[in-house]
Design a protein around this nucleic acid. Structure first.
Lengths: 366, 366
DNA sequence: GGACGCTTTCAAAGCGCTTTGGCTGCACTA
DNA sequence: TAGTGCAGCCAAAGCGCTTTGAAAGCGTCC
């Protein structure tokens, strides 16, 4: 029995190796393909890559054979030979219990579609926040990516200097507060969006307007508050600090904020939220206090059009400033690819949010 | 002027090339490193990769020099030489206006951390749903990944047969309905979670319990309904089809469902939701109908512990069955890596959700 | 003192592609 | 007729690593 056991093992191992070899044999490579065609690797490579110094008939023969043999160039070899990786990196810094940006999926979806179209790959590197810088260095040194997308820039984001010094092409989604001419970015006009939203509420007769904003070390949040304040000032309305909040953009934050606001001697008649998630929290608070949205209190939000939180179908139809984050992903990706491939590009792209009227806002009564 | 213009151009071009060369010169490689050390590339490579046939002093010298020269192996070369890509793929099928799974970010975060720890990369390929199969073929042929994670399996998912035939290591997050012994998966015990949740509600005296479920072509949703029905049957309670919904897992769906339920002659006194997003919709409906959660109607949900929707801090403290999706990501990643590296692994991992009591459930009154 | 074994090192051969620098005919000019 | 140009093809040299197979150096054993 000991013997037959060993025999079995030997056999199965041989079989395994056989299978593996067979499996690998199926993967055809340039050499086999060219031998098969009676051509040199050079010609085959050129034919497939669309170089002009190949006879069109030959090219057709090659392409057909490649298809028939199920040939696909080994991308590692290709990358080594060309020095290009056809890959774009996203570094996601993350602490153990950190909140993951809920916009991420949608952005990635949009970017991913664009990458796919241009035959680029997307590499995502999740690292501890403290190792973010390292991650970029590594990406550069080991030639894994041709460029990167920078997410969620702070007012004076150090990553920008770093990437410049690394000579690594990059596009920032959002922008820094200063010197935003020195690199490429794609951003929504947050300032304008929020001044427009505020003006809309003011136009409806509201004077006490609350702002529930994200953390204001993020530039987008700063700009949103600026837009809000500008519109208020322009209308000659006082800015009441006690009606402004800057915090994490989650449901309970907005809920608590609204509860606090409504207890004030002079509560707001309109509330402007920086995200739909916050709007949900605000909405819940209003329900809990038996206030009718769109009548007792007007509610507006900035809507990133996250796919799982579609304002169009959801909730009291909400008046929003909308700008699709998925679209942003695509735009960033395309800009970066153009940059990498040396095409002329605009230095940056500023998108405007769109005002969509719902029933959550109305003229101030009383 | 024409001349000086040309001269300028020539100069700046030279400068550019110089800079480029300089930039590339900075990237040190094995050759330079070994020359610098007076050793062969073989020895240096072995020293760095921890092979035993290298003198420990030599190894130390090498490691120091590598650090000093800022050496990092070019991963494309490494991959070409070893045939391993140290990369794991995720194929994300996506239609133009598809909803993007909101769990995705959290899962990716968890998986990404694990990859990072084991020095693996994560490659995400966003493709049209119709091209998903192609995407796997490609990944296999061009040697881009060592394995893949399969998301959101359907009852009889064709990807499993495909990946087996490609001889590509994979781990499924979730599982098929049948034959789930033939491949590796990581799943939460949805059946048990929902029977436990239902039993909890029954224990509180509820008899008319509604189920707001996801689309039941997803296996997880099927199992959840089974769990629900099993608990009802065990308690001898009738299963009322009109109190069950299977639909997209978004806020408005749950909202509409609850409104419909509550108009029934015998409305439910407890509602079980398949996700927190749905619970929010249900909650809103109850508010809108002036019903108190946890008193008039008990509400429970399955909580994937999405970071941006943390039940602990949010809302009426919700009674939930919790199972962290981020953790799942890590577990899937580790299992797959073990698989790829030939370590012994359990064939699959079944996780149990945890019952967390909140104030959204209470004994049935009246 | 030769055979042997062990440790430590190295030269060279890949990995599968791209790209450089020819080379071969053939058509066309002078 | 020799010379020129060009289309079309090829051999071979990389890309930067890993890995194979060999060998040098040295102590040990009979």
């Amino acid at each position: 029995m000991g013997f037959s056991f060993l025999l079995f093992h030997a056999l199965s191992k041989a079989l395994w190796i056989k299978l593996k070899q067979f499996g690998e044999a199926k993967l055809s490579n340039l050499k086999k393909l060219s031998e098969n065609l009676g051509l040199s690797q050079t010609t085959v490579s050129r034919a497939l890559n669309g170089y002009p110094e190949v006879n069109e008939n030959t090219r057709k023969r090659v392409i057909n054979a490649a298809r028939k043999m199920n040939y696909q160039p080994n991308s590692n070899a290709q990358r080594l030979a060309t020095g290009k990786s056809k890959t774009i990196g996203h570094v996601v810094p993350l602490a153990k219990h950190d909140m993951i940006n809920p916009h991420f999926s949608d952005f990635i979806a949009g970017a991913g579609e664009a990458y796919n179209k241009h035959h680029y790959d997307m590499l995502i590197s999740v690292v501890a926040a403290s190792e973010e810088e390292d991650a970029y260095h590594k990406m550069k040194r080991d030639g894994r990516v041709d460029g990167v997308i920078v997410h969620a820039p702070t007012a004076n984001d150090p990553r920008i200097a770093l990437l410049k010094s690394l000579d690594m092409p990059f596009v920032v989604h959002g922008r820094t507060y200063h010197n935003d001419d020195s690199y490429n970015w794609v951003d929504v006009n947050n300032r304008r969006a929020f001044s427009q939203a505020t003006a809309h509420l003011i136009g409806l007769g509201h004077k006490n307007i609350a702002l529930i904003n994200g953390w204001e070390h993020m530039v987008f949040a700063i700009k949103r508050r600026e837009g809000f304040m500008a519109a208020m000032q322009e209308a000659g309305l006082p800015i009441r600090e006690e009606l402004m909040v800057s915090d994490e953009m989650i449901e309970p934050v907005a809920n608590m904020a609204v509860r606090r606001f409504m207890r004030q001697p002079e509560p707001p008649t309109a509330i402007l939220c920086s995200s739909m998630l916050m709007a949900i929290g605000a909405q819940r608070a209003l329900y809990e206090m038996d206030l009718r949205i769109g009548r007792d209190v007007s509610l507006m939000a900035f809507d990133d059009n996250l796919s799982f939180m579609n304002a169009a179908t959801s909730m009291v139809s909400m008046t929003v400033m909308r700008s699709g984050i998925r679209q942003h992903g695509g735009i960033c990706a395309n800009l970066l690819i153009d940059l990498i491939e040396g095409r002329d590009t605009p230095p940056h792209i500023l998108l405007e949010a769109e005002l969509l009227l719902g029933t959550s806002t109305s003229a101030k009564v009383r």
